[in-house]
Design a protein around this nucleic acid. Structure first.
Lengths: 188, 188
DNA sequence: CACTGCGATGACAGTTGCTGTCATCACTAG
DNA sequence: CTAGTGATGACAGCAACTGTCATCGCAGTG
């Protein structure tokens, strides 16, 4: 008999996703999300900075795994390949979560405000990756360009992964997209 | 003796930039911008969809020039080089405007909401570029990857251009960044 | 066992971004 | 001269977000 139900944050995330799917992001109010989670609007804003952030709780972990992999990659490995390995290491974070990534992406695809938030999360991922490359001794602007190129590969691969209904292996899609990028930049 | 002063849109843009510089984006209210421009808040929202958009009036022209250049590039030219040419063609749009691009970028750098808006404008630029490449016969995912790589080059080159106080030629910076990208993706 | 501090929550008022709607009024075409 | 028309103002209203204080079960302390 606890005072409050546990996992308030998770309940809010769940309620928000459901409502965003049911009636769309703009048509759902923060008060409605809180009510479905058995909480108040004020409490929602204690857990999430704003109405969008509730969909982006996982991005910190993506960043942690990616930068760690880049940092730990063998020194002999090319910077771009180190990033490719890091991206491939994100696979389990998506593949474990079942329907969630696809549903979430559908919601985001339907609203520009959410797309803006997603883009800045990816930009943050790129900035952190560039930093990891710099610590590996890669100079500017090579570090930033490599990181941005890597994120471009991630975008394409992730879109395909969701598109294929998660049937193809995420790591393989990263590899394919990376090869395609190299082909495109070597054609000159 | 006209009923209204002319160029309401321009006055709003000017007033907004001034206030964003003077006291910061978050600390300035739309009512204040409108007042300085001699208009009302309601009129501000007739010209601009929201408080951020007032800083992004030029992005449509960027997109137009870039996609047109990509479309018109000689068929013998490699997709990535066609994009590089398109990016270089943006130079006059920045170089003509004097202090504006630098001031604007300073304001944007100071606020995440504005950065989000900037990122989605760049994403839109990438999407339009990818479309132009597809019309040129480039298949997916090569078109998207080429476009995203091009925008990454643009980001780096523009940052350097602003950083150097507009002293270096924008086109040259595009060329340098593009070469750096090729070096980085060919190292594997 | 009483006391005290703490952490998660609720209650409530207030600001501001943004929208819908209707009125106003100089100018223009006929 | 009259009937639009287009840009603007006035005003009401909603929803996102914030600041502040109260509440109350629990944990540790003496």
């Amino acid at each position: 008999m606890v005072r409050w139900e546990p996992n308030a944050r998770g309940r809010l995330e769940q309620a928000a996703l459901e409502l965003y799917i049911e009636r769309g992001y703009e048509q759902t109010t923060v008060a409605e999300i809180a009510k479905r989670a058995g909480l108040t609007e004020r409490t929602f804003f204690r857990y999430f900075a704003d109405k969008r952030e509730v969909l982006f709780g996982g991005s910190a972990e993506l960043q942690k795994v990616l930068t760690q992999k880049v940092t730990e990659a063998p020194e002999t490995m090319t910077p771009l390949d180190a990033v490719a390995d890091g991206l491939a290491a994100l696979a389990p974070l998506f593949e474990i979560r079942g329907e969630y990534p696809g549903q979430r992406q559908t919601v985001i695809a339907a609203n520009v405000d959410l797309q803006e938030r997603e883009l800045i999360k990816l930009a943050s991922l790129a900035a952190a990756t560039a930093q990891a490359l710099r610590e590996r001794g890669v100079a500017e602007p090579a570090a930033s360009l490599t990181a941005e190129a890597g994120i471009a590969v991630f975008k394409v691969a992730f879109a395909r992964w969701v598109d294929r209904g998660n049937k193809r292996e995420f790591g393989a899609l990263i590899q394919e997209s990376m090869d395609e990028l190299k082909a495109v930049t070597n054609a000159s």
